[in-house]
């Protein structure tokens, strides 16, 4: 079972809650996914429509909230959002996300490291979203990150494991759980990450924008389970040359050799 900062999770699929067309659809997709940890963002209450509270409908006992710091462009903004998340959510868990460039939404490694140090010292359980940089992952682990969340591809791109090689190194080196976050577009991408030994994956866009998000959530759940099972089963090694699966002897009855 997956354990992060002493909390255990049966499901290795974490789900984001953004971009759903309705809260009913989001809840149905969450149920289908089997996810126990869901990411949420923080925004101003719309005072012209204060009743529009889609997260209020979620059972927090069933779905553990992992607030993110999306929108933060530097460590100071991320720390401010972390304090708000703790106040709103009664939780000290945090998906730390510092993305200064709205075009690429790639995370700033220096500000992320800085914010992690500050927030760990303040008692937060910090799960930083990072580019797939093995050295940064080690640095974050050293300063007390509870997990690392390298991207498969940029947020919302559905491109899959573009960072496969680097994520492989991160997994090999990590002493904390590795959660592949962002860019996974179809269930096979999630299965690939899990087969490589990722401890979990986080999926949002691919499920939320699917024609049938509930079915897609289920598909990701099955893929994550299959990928994990395959990792535990220990895949055979890749070979450069063909090797017959059937016996290559006792074929004399076909021809004289």
């Amino acid at each position: 079972m997956l354990s992060i900062a002493g909390r255990t999770f049966r499901s290795r699929l974490f789900m984001g809650t953004g971009k759903f067309s309705s809260s009913a659809l989001m809840i149905a997709a969450l149920r289908a996914s089997g996810s126990e940890m869901v990411t949420v963002a923080l925004r101003r209450v719309d005072l012209n429509d204060p009743a529009d509270d889609i997260m209020g409908a979620l059972n927090r006992r069933r779905f553990f909230f992992l607030p993110n710091t999306s929108g933060a462009r530097d460590a100071a903004e991320a720390v401010r959002l972390a304090h708000l998340a703790r106040a709103a959510g009664d939780t000290n868990w945090l998906k730390l996300e510092v993305t200064p460039d709205p075009r690429t939404l790639l995370p700033d490694p220096i500000e992320t490291l800085k914010a992690t140090e500050i927030l760990v010292a303040e008692g937060f359980v910090v799960l930083p979203y990072i580019n797939a940089d093995p050295i940064l992952a080690l640095r974050l682990q050293d300063v007390g990150a509870a997990a690392v969340m390298p991207l498969g591809a940029p947020i919302g791109t559905n491109q899959g494991m573009l960072t496969r090689f680097q994520v492989g190194i991160i997994i090999e080196q990590a002493r904390v759980p590795v959660v592949v976050d962002a860019g996974l577009g179809v269930p096979s991408h999630a299965a690939e990450a899990m087969e490589m030994g990722a401890d979990a994956v986080l999926v949002n866009t691919a499920i939320a924008v699917a024609t049938d998000p509930v079915k897609m959530a289920k598909a990701f759940a099955v893929a994550v389970e299959a990928g994990r099972m395959a990792y535990e089963a220990g895949p055979g090694e890749k070979q450069d040359q063909a090797r017959a699966s059937s016996p290559d002897f006792d074929l004399n009855f076909l021809r004289d050799e």
Partner: peptide
Amino acid sequence: LELIRFVGGG
């Protein structure tokens, strides 16, 4: 005064 709450996010 800032009144902030959780919304859907990734």
